[in-house]
């Protein structure tokens, strides 16, 4: 019976084992299926945003007359209009546009690193991984500023009537945002902002850690000794996914 294995091997079908029916390695397949499950998580978040949004009235009237109130859902371009170092300047969506640009560029340098990996070019891999990491860290810093501004709020704040944490109805000027009340609109507006961009930022943070690991391992020659740069490809898939999610967050949270 010692030769059975070899004999069966030749008769095995596509799904009989001993080969790669999907023509991709185990690691790459699992990364794809993990990303599929992650797509569901983010989609659930964004669709929930849509559902909660349509359950509130929209602001009636021209955009430039918009004033914040917890009676209706805010117009995002009137809320996200601040840029670092330009205090008090109304620059709608400019900062988030810059963030989108940074993330797309880091996705480009990532795909260049993957291309270099296919050619076994260590120097190019290390160079592009470094650029990608830089893009990721810059994006995270931008998001930190964005959050800080969102939490601290504008100079004027908004006069609001709401139920505070002690269950009392109060009328006062609200500054910034927390999970309970925010000066921009109904409470779920800030809650969803924190959850959706926070969960995305968490993914970017993990991504930067993975990028650093891959960068380090490529630089010291671990992949060269291993004989292939597939790890760069797998981490690349994850990084592009982070970019993919941002494309949707940008549209659904900032544009629509």
């Amino acid at each position: 019976m010692s030769s059975t294995a070899i004999e069966i091997n030749s008769k095995r079908g596509t799904w009989g084992g001993g080969n790669e029916p999907l023509k991709a390695s185990y690691g790459k397949l699992m990364m794809w299926f993990f990303l599929l499950s992650d797509i569901f998580t983010f989609a659930a978040f964004l669709i929930t945003y849509g559902a909660i949004r349509v359950s509130y009235p929209a602001f009636e009237g021209p955009v430039h007359d918009f004033v914040s109130s917890n009676e209706y859902w805010p117009i995002p371009e009137m809320i996200f209009n601040a840029v670092p170092f330009l205090h008090g300047v109304h620059a709608p969506l400019v900062f988030v546009g810059i963030m989108t640009f940074i993330l797309i560029m880091s996705s480009v340098t990532m795909v260049l690193a993957v291309e270099a990996g296919h050619r076994n070019d260590r120097q190019d891999v290390v160079k592009w991984m470094l650029w990608t990491m830089l893009g990721g860290i810059t994006f995270l810093s931008c998001q930190a500023w964005e959050w800080s501004h969102f939490i601290h709020g504008t100079d004027a704040g908004t006069m609001m009537t709401y139920v505070n944490t002690f269950g009392e109805t109060v009328k006062e000027v609200v500054f910034g945002a927390n999970l309970h009340v925010n000066e921009y609109g109904p409470a779920p507006f800030a809650q969803l902002f924190f959850f959706i961009t926070g969960f995305h930022g968490f993914h970017v943070t993990i991504g930067v850690v993975l990028l650093f690991l891959a960068f380090y391992q490529a630089a010291v020659g671990i992949y060269e000794r291993r004989g292939h740069y597939e790890m760069i490809e797998k981490i690349g898939l994850y990084w592009h996914f982070v970019d993919l999610v941002w494309v949707f967050v940008f549209t659904f949270y900032y544009l629509v």
Binding site: I104, V108, V111, E115, R119, N120, D121, D124, E224, R225
Partner: peptide
């Protein structure tokens, strides 16, 4: 001191990446 053979840059592929960007 590479043990793997480094292939030359694939100009066409890189051009396509920048075009997509």
């Amino acid at each position: 001191n590479s043990t793997l053979e480094v292939l030359p840059r694939n100009k066409e592929k890189i051009k396509k990446i920048w075009k997509t960007a």
